[in-house]
Computed example of a mutant assay.
Amino acid sequence: MTVPNVLAVVPPHMGGRAAGTALAALLAEHARVTVVEAAGEDPPALRQARAIITALSPVTAGHLAAAPELELVQCASHGYDYVDLAAARRQQVTVCTIGSSDAERKNVAEQTFALMLALAKQLIPAHTALTRADWALPRLQPSITELSGRTLGVIGLGAIGREVARRAAAFDMTVQYTGPRPAPAEVELRLGARRVDLDELLRTSDYVSLHAPLTDRTRHLLDAERLALLKPTAFVVNTARGALIDQDALADALTAGALAGAGLDVFDPEPPTTGLRLLRAPGVVLSPHVGGVTRETVVRIALAAVQNVTEYLAGRPPRDAVS
C-alpha cells in the first residue's frame, strides 16, 4: 500500500520547524510528512503532496498549480483567508478548517476579554508608569472605566462570537450583534443578544468586538467611514483577522482622539512591519496573535487538524470543508 505524502507548513512566527516536527509526529503512522516553513520551500515535496496542513501560511494559486497530487488543504485554524479558495475549487482541492473542533474558541474569547479589561482599566499605561516609580493614578483616573452596564457589539455571532457574548453576561453587559444571518431564536434568548445592523451597532456600542471571517466582502469592514460612527468613548477589539479593519484609518482615529482605544491581537500582515502606525498609536493594547495559542490550545488545534487529515486519508469525508 502506498504511503500518502503530507506537507506540514508552519511559518517561523508560528513556531517553524520545531512546531512542524511535533505536528508531523502525530501523523507518522499514517503518512510520510515533510516539514517546511513555506509551502514552496520544497518543490518535490509539494509536487508529491496529497494533503497540506498549514498553520496560517499562505497556500496560493501557484502552490496549488505546482501540486498535481493534492486533494486536501487542512487549515490549522478557524480562518482560511490565507488559502486561495477560488484556485482550490478550480483544481477540485478540498479546503478544511478546524471550525467545529472547539479547539480554540474559548481561549479566543478569553483573549478578547483580556484586551477589553486592559483597555477599560488602563493596565498598560498604569504598569508602565509604575515600573518608573510613577504613581499615575491621578493622571489615569479620568480614563478608567467599567464593563458592567456597557453595551458590547459583537460582529459575527459564530462559535467564538457566542463564547464572547456568553462571557459578557458575567460582566453585566448588554449584548447586540450583527451578521449576515440572524442566530437561532434560542441562541439569542440564551445569550440575551439582539440583532441590529452594522451601522447601528457601531453607533450604540461601548465595546465593539470583531469575530467575522476575512473574505472579499469583510476586508476593511471597519473603514474610515464606519469608524467615524463610533462614540469617542468606544473601544474596538479585534481577535479575528487584522484586515477586517483599515489599519491606517484606525490609527488616524486613535491619533485624533475619535476613539478611546483599541485592543488588537491580529494584524495585516503578520508579523506586522515596523512601519505599521498602529504599533505607535495612542490608546492601544497589542498582543502577537496569542488568542488561540495557549499551551493547551496548540495541542487541541494540532490534534483536530491531524484527525481531519487522518480521516480523509482513510477514505472518510473531512469535517469543516469550506470549498
Rank of each mutant, 00 (worst) to 15 (best):
A65M: 03
L254I: 06
F171D: 07
V298W: 11
Y207C: 01
L313A: 08
P43F: 10
T145W: 04
A243C: 08
L115G: 04
D84L: 04
D84C: 06
R316N: 10
R194V: 14
T174A: 13
V290I: 15
R226T: 07
R162S: 08
A133K: 06
A51Y: 00
R300L: 11
G156V: 02
A126I: 04
G156K: 02
R105Q: 15
L227F: 05
E311Y: 05
R139P: 00
V35H: 01
S205G: 00
T310E: 15
G275E: 12
A24K: 05
E29H: 13
A126L: 08
N238R: 07
Q111V: 14
L264E: 01
N238P: 09
A67S: 08
D268I: 10
R300D: 10
L303C: 11
S100C: 04
S209Q: 11
A305C: 12
A302V: 11
G99I: 08
L250P: 02
T60P: 05
A304L: 04
V108L: 09
Y80Q: 05
Y80A: 10
H211C: 05
Q74D: 12
G40Y: 07
V196Y: 05
D197L: 02
L313Q: 05
P184I: 00
V196A: 07
G40M: 11
V298N: 06
T151C: 13
F171P: 02
S148Q: 12
R167V: 15
A168L: 01
V10S: 02
P232W: 09
L27T: 04
L189A: 15
H289L: 09
A31Y: 00
A321I: 01
D265Q: 09
V83H: 03
G283E: 10
A133D: 00
Y207I: 01
R50P: 11
K121Q: 15
A45Y: 00
I144L: 12
S323C: 14
I53G: 02
V83T: 03
E270N: 03
L26K: 11
P288F: 13
E71C: 04
E71G: 15
R195F: 11
I53C: 06
V95M: 06
A169W: 12
A304E: 06
A109V: 06
Q92R: 15
L259N: 04
I155T: 09
L115M: 13
A126N: 03
T174Q: 15
P58G: 08
T218R: 03
V266A: 04
Q111K: 15
L221S: 05
F113M: 01
A169R: 12
E186S: 08
G161F: 14
